[in-house]
Design a protein around this nucleic acid. Structure first.
Lengths: 141, 141
DNA sequence: TTTAATTTTGTAATCAGTACAAATTTCTAT
DNA sequence: ATAGAAATTTGTACTGATTACAAAATTAAA
């Protein structure tokens, strides 16, 4: 329960109630929520929470590398508290985002990263797929 | 010169003057321009051009698969008329976007695509890198 | 050559994200 | 403890990219 507090501190993040709440939400909801979703969910139990705080916190979390901000959806940012290397798939029909484990613990991404990148200092890699998820494929229409 | 017209027609796009102008611009400017940049550049020689037309046209181009809309920059969409499979690198300092050729003509991406994607119908793949470009690395401060 | 279909245009609206300064909370040093 | 400094949170106002929409213009078809 209080593990999150220690986790944040270990990452150099002061564990304010808001930050703990946001981090907990992200850890419990791995469905790549939007900022809006985070705010809406926490707003009820924490009525004073401001949307600006959510944005500030997420920017801090990204800097401290405890959260990824995904740009796979052109509408709005999606959050992901899983930092192990993995790719993402978004269904163009239902909009859901799925994690895609990259074989060999990201070695593939490493390989990719090597090609032609001479002189480029790569700090982040994002792999995005778009298409139709299994559930939507078996839908009539 | 008039090749573009035929190219568009071959892709099922009616070659209006606006569409030809936009396509030509994208083919001549492979530096992943923004929508704004396209509009600004063409607006002078084609004063009646509307920004809405640029947006409409680009959406059409994407549907017809003659242009990619890149979401690598969180601020605004970037355009790319190169449809051969390749990745992109954005410098976090200067903001420039570079093409990264994926070795073996996209076979690497194909490999990635295979893993764990059972049941998922992949239609697009985007690989985004972020970091510091060679030029910005050799900059003081 | 009138009618229908397509495309373009301009304006207004939307909506995610940011700037900013006041208010609050937390930390530190007495 | 407690005053003052530092960090954090909050609310409001703003920005700026993108979209909605309906009228105007262009093109195709009969």
């Amino acid at each position: 329960m209080e593990k999150v507090q220690e986790y944040l501190m270990s990452k150099g993040i002061r564990p304010s109630p808001q930050r703990i709440a946001i981090m907990n939400y992200l850890l419990d909801n791995c469905n790549h929520p939007t900022v809006e979703a985070v705010y809406d969910a926490l707003h009820t139990s924490m009525p004073t929470l401001s949307k600006t705080t959510v944005y500030n916190t997420l920017k801090l979390f990204e800097e401290k590398k405890v959260v990824q901000l995904l740009n796979i959806d052109e509408r709005n940012v999606r959050l992901d508290a899983t930092m192990e290397p993995h790719a993402h798939f978004q269904c163009m029909r239902c909009g859901k985002i799925f994690d895609v484990s990259v074989k060999n613990g990201g070695k593939m991404a490493e390989l990719l990263r090597m090609n032609e990148m001479t002189g480029f200092e790569v700090q982040q890699t994002q792999i995005y797929y778009k298409g139709i998820c299994p559930h939507c494929q078996s839908e009539k229409e």
